[in-house]
Design a binder for these strands. Structure first.
Ligand SMILES: [Mn+2]
Ligand SMILES: [Mn+2]
Ligand SMILES: [Zn+2]
Ligand SMILES: [Zn+2]
Lengths: 136, 136
DNA sequence: CAGGTTATCGCAAGTTGTCGCAATAGTGAC
DNA sequence: GTCACTATTGCGACAACTTGCGATAACCTG
């Protein structure tokens, strides 16, 4: 079943705007901002409003095709849902970003599940701190 | 040394606006938004601009008197730096917030320090997920 | 406590994202 | 193909900050 069919099977519609947002996410492998996607879409179709891009990212997330994560101070990054999940370390001094395997975070996930009944999504927000190079 | 003296000793100034922001943070024990502080300050001193409140929160954070955390996707929460630090669990379904002791997060902190040389601030962003009540 | 330096302020304009609404256009049904 | 239904769009207004700038007022110095 194509993405379009999957979308329709959930009572939603495949519009040209939605297609363009999906294409932009496809091209940009990883971690794109909504503003970057809007810029790409609007470079060819200037009549498309930025709010349409924002709403489509949200809608596609609800449908399970897209997810978002946060780096420091809430900058939202979007990517296709089928890329391998991973955590992020962000240095608040130099701004460097580092990816870490989800495996590193799993022991905490299990603990929160056992002690609090809480199913944590530990990849959703980057962990901020001071990186090795910036350490005093 | 008073807060005012400490501020002056770092080449900064203690203005009435800065005093009012500190007072508002003192009264609101925990997790206040900049907008809430601005509202309080402006209820008595309407000539004070909201941008002054935002700039003072940032300045006071730089001076070490104030910090911020992120609970949901939107608003930044501010509090005095001398309150006991703790983590947060936020349910993405029902929005409930739960505090957890920093001790729970420490094993991950030690691991990131040992494996990556990264000094994580694990209280900076809430951990999102699904709470016990909302679990399927 | 007057004077000069400059951190800080108020204001206006800009940025990034959200929202209500009337017009438009995908869809499934005939 | 045509049609009615309603998800989605473009637009304007709004929300939550952010920034540049000229005016003001802390502060130190003598
Ligand atoms: Mn932050
Ligand atoms: Mn989020
Ligand atoms: Zn760094
Ligand atoms: Zn919940």
């Amino acid at each position: 079943m194509s993405v379009a069919d999957e979308i329709r099977s959930k009572g939603k519609r495949m519009t040209v705007q939605r297609r363009l947002v999906l294409d932009a996410l496809q091209r940009a492998r990883h971690h794109t901002t909504a503003e970057e996607i809007a810029r790409q879409v609007r470079s060819r179709h200037p009549q498309i409003d930025p709010s349409t891009v924002y709403r489509n990212l949200e809608a596609l997330e609800g449908l399970g095709f897209v997810t978002h994560t946060h780096l420091d101070d809430r900058v939202t990054r979007w990517h296709r849902a089928d890329v391998e999940r991973h955590g992020h370390l962000v240095c608040r001094r130099c701004g460097s970003e580092q990816e870490i395997p989800l495996r590193t975070l799993e022991p905490l996930g299990r603990r929160l599940r056992a002690e609090q009944g809480f199913r944590a999504d530990l990849a959703h927000s980057a962990i901020v701190g001071i990186c090795r190079e910036c350490a005093p």
